[in-house]
């Protein structure tokens, strides 16, 4: 399938946000959806050849008070990759889990939950530790998490004991 054919297909069947469909590189497309249209669209794409979910990830747009969720789908059959994106509120962020469509989603969602604090409804692993153990601060990939001050607080700064005089070239 050519990029344009997919665009036509999507335009016919899917409601995406005005003007946001884009071929950003050969065989690679991206488009932005309303949150509520997301699941239907993903299902539609899966039925149309996009059998592989490559990843789900999240971007923190703290200035706009939004999280952007990005779903990367691959169709080997059509030789196309698409990024399906949606924005959700940053306060009390929620999304429906898609692990019934792609079981792998379970862990991607769990990771996003852990690192951004987005809650995926229907995923049993929410609030379960995956990577972080005994984490006691805000989800660390949020933009307002400052790793430097966290580490200053948690770890001692090592001071080396040397003098410039001793080291100086004679």
């Amino acid at each position: 399938m050519k990029e344009q054919e997919l665009i036509d297909l999507i335009e016919k069947h899917v409601k995406y946000e005005e003007g946001s469909i884009e071929v950003y590189a050969p065989r690679k497309l991206k488009f932005i959806l309303k949150k509520d249209d997301l699941v239907d669209t993903l299902l539609f794409l899966k039925r149309n050849g996009f059998v592989q979910l490559s990843f789900i990830t999240c971007v923190d747009w703290i200035k706009d008070n939004k999280f952007e969720l990005v779903y990367g789908l691959v169709s080997w059959e059509h030789k196309l990759t698409v990024l399906v994106k949606t924005f959700i509120d940053r306060d009390n962020p929620k999304m429906i889990s898609i692990m019934d469509i792609w079981p792998t989603a379970k862990y991607y969602e769990q990771e996003i939950n852990e690192f951004f604090g987005v809650y995926f409804e229907g995923n049993p692993n929410m609030s379960k530790e995956l990577i972080l153990e005994n984490w006691d601060s805000m989800p660390p990939l949020r933009k307002d998490f400052d790793p430097q001050s966290y580490s200053n607080e948690k770890f001692e700064i090592r001071i080396y004991d040397y003098k410039m005089e001793d080291k100086k070239k004679k």
Partner: peptide, 29 residues
């Protein structure tokens, strides 16, 4: 933003990257 992938020894390996026009990546996955 862009997702770029290649075939590693273990399969599809990719970077999803976002730039806000600055001197550092805004987000890399």
């Amino acid at each position: 933003d862009a997702y770029v992938k290649l075939e590693s020894a273990r399969g599809e390996f990719g970077y999803y990257m976002v730039s806000d026009g600055g001197t550092k990546p805004y987000r890399v996955f």
